[in-house]
C-alpha cells in the first residue's frame, strides 16, 4: 500500500510546491509538511508531500549499514 517516491522541492507557493523526481516534475500539496523548504526532499504520495526526508539520518543510516556489511566480511 502507499506508493511513495522521494522528490526534491524546487519551488514553494502557499500550500503547494513544485517537486522534481529525476527530471520529472509535478505540483504537489505541502499541507502535511509545513516546514518543507526549497532543496528539501519530501516523500510524495498521491499528490501530497507526506514527510520531509532527513538527509543526515539517511547518510548515517547508509554509513552504518555499509560499516555493518564491511565488518561482517
Amino acid at each position: 500500500m502507499c506508493l511513495g517516491v522521494p522528490a526534491k522541492v524546487i519551488k514553494i507557493e502557499d500550500d503547494h510546491a513544485l517537486v522534481d523526481v529525476m527530471g520529472s516534475r509535478m505540483y504537489v500539496g505541502t499541507i502535511f509538511v509545513p516546514d518543507a523548504k526549497i532543496d528539501d526532499y519530501v516523500l510524495l504520495h498521491a499528490g501530497q508531500a507526506m514527510t520531509i526526508v532527513d538527509e543526515e539520518y539517511a547518510k548515517e543510516s547508509m554509513t552504518e549499514w555499509r560499516n555493518l556489511l564491511d565488518d561482517r566480511t
Binding site: I31, F32, V33, M50, T51, V53, D54, S61
Partner: peptide, 18 residues
C-alpha cells in the same frame, strides 16, 4: 525504525490532526 530519515516516533502530527 530502520527508516528514521522518513519516519518519526510520533508520525506526522498535521496528518493525524486532519
Amino acid at each position: 525504525n530502520d527508516y528514521t530519515y522518513l519516519v518519526k516516533d510520533e508520525g506526522n502530527l498535521v496528518a493525524q490532526k486532519m
